[in-house]
Write a protein that binds this DNA or RNA. Structure first.
Length: 119
DNA sequence: AGAATGACAGGAA
DNA sequence: GTTCCTGCCATTC
């Protein structure tokens, strides 16, 4: 039956690409959360899918370091090589990192933003 | 099939 | 401010 074909809007290649695009769209000096990226792709609740895409990514140009947990923490365990590399890259573009954490914009895609944002 | 595993999130304590 | 705990989604054993 054809239901099976259309029944998987995610998990396919285009979803993967949309996520990568959303990550590339995060401006230099700014950050976004895994869940935020997912929402922007119409994939609410799939933060872990974004994490998976990042893990499997090999593109050196992808600004992977701009993606943080929703509370602003770097996802890698503190002290690890990757965690420090991420902090280094963020600071290199002017982002303040303190104790492996970044102050999140506090709005991103939250209800607060939806209600209060201009436009 | 059931359990374990993650570059997660959100709310409770 | 924390840390802890539960819920989630998708994949792998």
């Amino acid at each position: 039956m054809l239901t099976r074909i259309m029944a998987t809007p995610e998990g396919n290649e285009s979803t993967h690409l949309r996520i990568l695009d959303a990550i590339r769209a995060v401006p230099r000096g700014e950050v976004a959360s895994y869940g935020g990226i997912a929402r922007r792709c119409g994939l609410a609740g799939r933060a872990r899918l974004v994490a998976r895409v990042l893990r499997e990514n090999d593109d050196a140009d992808l600004p992977w370091h701009r993606i943080l947990r929703s509370d602003g923490r770097i996802a890698f365990a503190p002290g690890t090589r990757q965690s420090r590399e991420q902090a280094r890259r963020l600071r290199a573009e002017g982002v303040l990192v303190r104790n492996g954490r970044v102050r999140m914009a506090a709005e991103e895609d939250t209800l607060h933003a939806a209600v209060w944002a201009p436009r």
